[in-house]
Design a binder for these strands. Sequence first.
DNA 1: CTATATACATAACGCCGTTATATAGTTGAC
DNA 2: GTCAACTATATAACGGCGTTATGTATATAG
Lengths: 140, 140
Amino acid sequence: MDQDEKIADALSRLVRWAIRVVPKQMSMTAMSTLSTLSSGPLRISELADREGAAQPGMTALVNRLETSGHVRRAPDPSDGRATLVHLTTQGQRDLDARRAARTAALRTEIERLPAEHRAALAGALEAIDYLTAGVDKPND
Amino acid sequence: MDQDEKIADALSRLVRWAIRVVPKQMSMTAMSTLSTLSSGPLRISELADREGAAQPGMTALVNRLETSGHVRRAPDPSDGRATLVHLTTQGQRDLDARRAARTAALRTEIERLPAEHRAALAGALEAIDYLTAGVDKPND
DNA sequence: CTATATACATAACGCCGTTATATAGTTGAC
DNA sequence: GTCAACTATATAACGGCGTTATGTATATAG
């Protein structure tokens, strides 16, 4: 097993570990959709595209998020067929809280690490930024 | 934002990135259950405990895995109430294949990285090992 | 004006998980 | 040995999450 494969295996384990450590919250797609909406309202189909989901799945998700008060539907004034999905104030608040909870859970684990391990992870920050260039930053 | 929080955020993004990059395959619980079974047959309830699932959920999962030929039910000779779940040869083969596919997908991405970033990640291997000490290694 | 394309909703399905409950087998007190 | 209590699994009913196939209303091009 060479170095790159060791890294790949370590990332695999890291994912399973993170999923155990981080509180369940809502689905990845739901969180990501709220995050996307925090930049402004979007149509159902546009959301579906951005989240890599099918349109009916996004319709169902928006229904649930509407029921839970995270988003609100409004007609698109420029197109009678379309619906604009808006993030509600409560949706924004909840998104922030869940992100904070996620970070706090990971942080607790990181703080347990010996200094040299924390330093090693800090040294990999740029590499992780590079690798995850396509992923939304928390402050989007 | 201090160093530890930066690391927590980076890990957050890394995990979401990895989940996007890796092919969907089967559910985490299904993969993990097959992995657990590769050390030997176990009861439904023991599996549920180890995977952190409720017993009826594990019964349903074993049903699906049985239908797909990954596992096989056998009576427990020492207890008429219990069922021993065995990994089939096909289940073991499939588990190996999916693990290989997962590693290959991550590896492809890692190989794209500049040498210094790969080195930085290699430097964090021990830290990741430490962090994920409780997670099953791929070769269990 | 009509044909086609678009945006969304709905229906039917499957996977994945939950809690509450039923059934069958085991075990211990008497 | 019998019976009550416990245990292992299964079943039922539900909800979240996603899919494809299809229906309906609006928009738009010719």
